[in-house]
Design a protein around this nucleic acid. Structure first.
Lengths: 228, 228
DNA sequence: ATCTCTGGTGATCGATCGATAAACTGAGTT
DNA sequence: AACTCAGTTTATCGATCGATCACCAGAGAT
């Protein structure tokens, strides 16, 4: 009865892809997997998502760690493709409008479950690329914003921003970032109108900057000179 | 020659602890381990930190998951011990002073590598306890702060805060929280004077709230008010 | 001195992990 | 039709994981 009937090994019909396609498919699906499971996600689960077997991964990547590095590269470089440099510095448009548009576009790029989770997971690993990204936000976004704010307020735009200014910008930036974390990581209810949230945050940031600029210019009579 | 010489098995001298002490030591060290390695940290590494063998863990916890749950409990309940209810609602003191003191104490409790990393790791797992904590921050901190702000501004304190008000408070709170993340997770340089950071953030939050309160009462005349 | 109870150890199991080696498959070339 | 070679699979290894079991050891009670 229970004789071993020779089961015709129905081998799942191979779906052959070109090397470049397969490779990029590995990176894409790995991003999805690691976003959900963390970088502890298994190579077998990854292969299953592609409908292939696990050893195939090692025809395209020497090790799992090399795959992870490519995931980093992809995720961290993604939001850089929006070209914020010219957007923030285009002084033919009002500063307020530029900032609003920049943060709408920037958050469009990073406010999604995939990006935020990979970012947080990699941040917890304390990798250099994460520090690099934070430094880039500081140099390429916050410093630039502060320079434009100073220009808008008729202040000197030379030199680096003061520590207090930078901290103000960071708290503002972090407040916006945390909106994405609440929505996509904690899945908590948020004010659905993202543009409105940005607008409100911008209001209080710009008001705060003006207040700080005023008290700084008044300080010329005081011994400590903060502005050049 | 190579005869098996009976090696005197030098068993590491047992260091016996009472059951309650050993148990709490497991929880404490597990918090440290999981903060660094994530919840994928191994039970053998944990036992090594205590100087005991791995099976001992299972005399105190049915499974690793039960241990993790105790770690959650400990970490999430820690910042609740500061008794913020009365601190925020004590109207005999100026609102500004209360808020400053509250956030200094609150951040003293949560701004450390251990707490923040466990919080982020557990948040990424999407557990109920994390949602519970976020809801508690909203109900017990932000809603309370907003009520005190409304009272201070001579507005009605009945009913729930508006979605816009809550979002304003969240961006403020998130901005402060992100300061801790930058310092202890990303290990990025931050303005070292935490109290100053809180003070500056409070300035712009309170100014923003006043502006919002004004435009809310003025709203009968002008539909959109951009500048105060 | 012996007994007892409990905190702790040694050995080991099955599952799962990343990784390797060898065999297979099938579309394109000759 | 036979050959080629890149893409894929099967089989398997060694390490590590959480968990279980039987046994050991030592302080206090008798």
């Amino acid at each position: 009865m229970n004789r071993k009937t020779p089961v015709k090994r129905v081998r799942a019909k191979q779906r052959r892809l070109s090397a470049v396609d397969r490779r990029s498919e590995f990176v894409t699906k790995a991003t999805e997997l690691f976003a959900e499971e963390g970088f502890g996600g298994g190579t077998r689960a990854l292969a299953h998502k592609l409908g292939v077997t696990q050893p195939l991964l090692y025809r395209y990547f020497p090790s799992k760690d090399d795959l992870i590095k490519e995931v980093y590269r992809k995720v961290y470089l993604e939001p850089l493709e929006i070209g914020w440099e010219k957007l923030l510095s285009d002084r033919s448009r009002p500063l307020r409008v530029r900032l609003q548009e920049f943060y709408e576009i920037y958050t469009d790029a990073i406010f999604n479950r995939r990006w935020l989770r990979i970012y947080l997971y990699s941040g917890l690993k304390g990798l250099d690329i994460n520090r690099w990204y934070v430094g880039m936000v500081k140099d390429k976004i916050l410093t630039r914003i502060l320079r434009e704010c100073r220009h808008d307020a008729g202040l000197a735009t030379q030199g680096r921003p003061s520590a207090a200014e930078l901290e103000l910008a960071w708290v503002f930036h972090g407040g916006i970032f945390y909106y994405g974390v609440r929505k996509y990581i904690y899945e908590a209810p948020v004010l659905e109108d993202k543009a409105q949230m940005i607008s409100d945050a911008l209001d209080i940031f710009l008001a705060g900057f003006e207040r700080m600029a005023e008290s700084a210019t008044d300080r010329r009579r005081a011994p400590i000179k903060v502005v050049g």
